[in-house]
Structure formats: structure tokens, C-alpha cells
């Protein structure tokens, strides 16, 4: 696969967010394998850590600077940086401002894509012949992905309905969508909010899980693991038996 404007083979750097690295390596593996299925040369720089979001999210920009520098050092050489996380993409693209905006920084910021938008907008994928997921699935859009990256239309606005994740999932054999009553409602993760404002965060998570349960979904999927980690944590504690699976796994052909 070539870089459109340069006509040279595309080199993709894979960014695996810290919580995916730690708790959901299978999401990282699925993302890597999925990108490779499209003939891309994908590398994972092993010295990566984080995008700086926890600090920036808390207002501590200065504390984020060194982590941001490290990110740019790790990813500066790639044509595209792809990550299975919308909130990290939003951090890099829209909020990575703690460091001097050099050419390298600007390159990294403009070339970082969340997996779904990369598949949908850059690769323009039109089939996942290997994928089959005969289950009832509720889709959760992370708020950053929804309202900042604009991965789907939002209920607050009067706009033509669209959804990039749904468009991709729609190409998966056997999948059935479950409708939530409040599909756009934040689940309460909110980065460091989940730790600092634990009470409201957990209540929002419980309400989200209840909505998912009522929808008759068997699985919940999202292009963001962080929200799902929070939702799954709430679901387990509530004794609810919903299964959470990253969209990369479904698109990569996971069966269950």
C-alpha cells in the first residue's frame, strides 16, 4: 500500500495505549494483525509509553511535556501512526501542545489516526471477508471519538446520520446491532475523572451497563478500550454478564 501523496510504500507505526498494553494485549494484537491483512508494513516502537493524556486531562501540561516528547521520538519516522483508541488520538491530534511545535511534532500530530477512521478514511476498506460475528452487539462511541474526531453523527446536532464504526461493522457477516436508549450518553470514564470523581463516574457506568443490558445485547464493542474497561468493571461488580470486545477484534475475525 502506498502513501497517496508520495507514491512510496506506507510505513505505519502502531501506538498501543498504556491500558491496552497492560490489560488488553489481545486488542493490540488484533489491531496489528488487522493492519497487516491490508498489506501494510506495521511497526511497534517498543520504547513507547503513553500519549500524555492523564496529565493534560488534569490540566498539568508541564508534567505532560516529557511524555509527549517521547511520543514524538518514537513515532516521528512513520507515515501514519495508528492506534486503537480515539481518546489518545484526540490527545495527540488536538491537545499535544505542551511541547514546542516543531515540524516533527506537527507531522506526528497530523498523521495520527484512530483505527476506525484510518480503515474508513485512509484505507477506505470495503470488505472484511474473514470476519464473521453472529451476535447481537451494542456499539459504544467514546465521547472524544464521537464529538472531537467526529467518527459518527451526534444526537445533539441536526446533521445527516452517519457512523464510521457502524459502516465497518456492517461488513461483518452475521452481526446484529442492539439499540441503546441513550447511545451518545457518556459512560463516565473521562480519564482521570474515573479516579478523582469516582462516585459520579461509577453511577454513570452503571447506568450505561443497564442501558446495554436492556438493549438485549450479548456483546458491547467500541473503538476505545478505556471506556469499556470502566464499563466492564461496573458490569462485573453488578453481576451483569455482558461481554466487552474491541472493534479491532471483531474486524480481525474474532468469532466470540
Amino acid at each position: 500500500m502506498l502513501v497517496e501523496d508520495k507514491g512510496i510504500p506506507m510505513k505505519v507505526g502502531l501506538f498501543v495505549p498504556c491500558y491496552v498494553d497492560m490489560f488488553h494485549p489481545e486488542t493490540g494484537i488484533a489491531t496489528l494483525e488487522l493492519l497487516e491483512r491490508f498489506g501494510l508494513s506495521v511497526e511497534y516502537p517498543v520504547d513507547q509509553t503513553c500519549c500524555g493524556q492523564p496529565m493534560t486531562n488534569t490540566g498539568c501540561e508541564r508534567e505532560a511535556a516529557k511524555t509527549e516528547e517521547l511520543f514524538v521520538r518514537n513515532f516521528g519516522k512513520y507515515d501514519y501512526i495508528v492506534t486503537p483508541s480515539g481518546s489518545c488520538t484526540n490527545q495527540v491530534r488536538n491537545n499535544m501542545t505542551a511541547i514546542e511545535q516543531t515540524e516533527a511534532v506537527k507531522h506526528v500530530r497530523s498523521r495520527t489516526y484512530e483505527l476506525v477512521e484510518f480503515l474508513h478514511d485512509v484505507l477506505k476498506v470495503d470488505a472484511f471477508p474473514w470476519a464473521e460475528f453472529p451476535h447481537r452487539v451494542a456499539l459504544h462511541n467514546n465521547c472524544n471519538t464521537l464529538r472531537n474526531l467526529r467518527i459518527a453523527s451526534m444526537s445533539e446536532r441536526r446533521e445527516e446520520p452517519f457512523s464510521k464504526p457502524k459502516a465497518l461493522l456492517g461488513m461483518v457477516k452475521g452481526i446484529e446491532f442492539a439499540d441503546l436508549t441513550r447511545p451518545d450518553e457518556c459512560c463516565g470514564f473521562g480519564g482521570t475523572f474515573s479516579v478523582f470523581e469516582e462516585g459520579v463516574s461509577a453511577k454513570m457506568g452503571q447506568d450505561k451497563v443497564t442501558d446495554q443490558l436492556k438493549s438485549g445485547a450479548e456483546y458491547v464493542t467500541s473503538s476505545d478500550s478505556s471506556c469499556m474497561m470502566h464499563q466492564e468493571g461496573c458490569a462485573r461488580r453488578m453481576g451483569v454478564n455482558l461481554k466487552y470486545i474491541h472493534i479491532a477484534q471483531i474486524l480481525n475475525g474474532a468469532r466470540a
Binding site: 490489560f23 478523582f196 461509577a202
Partner: peptide, 28 residues
């Protein structure tokens, strides 16, 4: 004292290896 995650949420289980370890073993 901010170990607040676990008050109303289960803590995710840590898998046997991180993605980083998997990559070093299988791809690097």
C-alpha cells in the same frame, strides 16, 4: 488514598503478558 477504582468497579485482570512483551517475543 485515591485507590477509588475498585469501590464500585471490578479491577481488570492483568493478563499473563503485556502487548509489549508479546511483541518482543513474537515480532521483534
Amino acid at each position: 488514598k485515591l485507590n477509588t477504582w475498585g469501590r464500585k468497579r471490578d479491577i481488570p485482570e492483568t493478563p499473563k503478558q503485556t502487548f509489549n512483551e508479546w511483541y518482543r517475543r513474537n515480532r521483534k
